[in-house]
Design a protein around this nucleic acid. Structure first.
Lengths: 168, 168
DNA sequence: GCAAGTTGCTTCGAATTCGAAGCATGTACG
DNA sequence: CGTACATGCTTCGAATTCGAAGCAACTTGC
């Protein structure tokens, strides 16, 4: 009846696969650069970048984990590595004794500053070179919208909603 | 002087980060669905999907690895798992005794057929719902272009080019 | 204030991931 | 044909990844 639902899939799947493929390819390329020039992994770079962006250079573990889309235990491990290398410090939040606040050190900022130019270069060469200025705008806008949408969408199987009533 | 090169970086970085973030979020969501409904990982799904698309349901290991952006050894491992579960078979290529050809089995096709609807559903809900039809087209086109560009770009440190001459 | 439930982080074990090394086959060129 | 190199895959070891379980600190409702 509705001529809509079915026939779209092919186009959609193309866009979807292209998106994921570009993401993988880019990440792979960028990881090479980070590894050889600064001995950092992609996650570590992301963490440091986010800390650099923060007004006071600090974030709680959970916020970082959610931000970079990583498991909590995984982030604990990575934060440990970064700390061992003197790029961040960890101390418990005075406002919430459970929380751990990660802060970027001067060495961390210096490293990011050193790596960023080359990093941007790789991205520019691979991602932006084949794009007209117009496309960049669209891409940025559309992806931003999608990101916000996904972030706002509750994980389909939302918390069991422990209802007070006996039913269930 | 040129008001162009420098000031762009901020916008560009935004688009770039949005792209990577959406990729991560999508993959994460999709992985949940595949794992609970069919006990497949994202890579395994991609491999089976590519085999399904192939005219004869076969691909060489290397082509698969490059296609899904995965290490060779990693693909060996995954192919082993898929084979153990009866979703693919592996046999050496008669045309090239070194090569191994992976072929999808009926069980493999059946599994993909079973999973695809739910899979498409997740993607539609997260990626396409917030997009106008127009945006989808642009996205598809732009990302396709980028993908081709990256695929065509030699890995910056191209093969040492063992020149015959003595000068390095 | 305290019992029950949440939330934030780490530890633990098992699975996955990658690059380097190993092996076998294929190809170029004399 | 035979040497030298290239290519395709797997095995190996070390590093990473995640979810489940554990622990400590908060919050709520009384």
């Amino acid at each position: 009846m509705t001529p809509d639902p079915a026939p779209l899939d092919a186009d959609q799947l193309n866009a979807y696969f292209a998106l994921m493929e570009v993401g993988s390819l880019l990440q792979h390329a960028v990881e090479q650069q980070l590894r050889t020039e600064g001995d950092l992994s992609w996650v570590q770079f992301q963490v440091l970048a986010r800390l650099t962006d923060a007004p006071d250079g600090r974030h709680r573990m959970t916020d970082l984990a959610d931000g970079v889309v990583y498991s909590r235990s995984g982030l604990t491990y990575q934060a440990g590595l970064l700390e061992k290398n003197g790029l961040v410090t960890r101390e418990s939040d005075p406002d919430d004794e459970r929380a751990v606040v990660v802060a970027i050190t001067d060495a961390g900022r210096a490293l990011i500053a050193r790596l960023l130019p080359g990093h941007v270069d790789v991205v520019r060469r691979l991602l932006f070179q084949p794009l007209r200025h117009r496309d960049l705008d669209t891409l940025s806008q559309v992806l931003g919208r999608v990101r916000d949408h996904i972030r706002a969408t509750p994980p389909r199987s939302a918390k069991p909603r422990r209802s007070r009533g006996p039913a269930t």
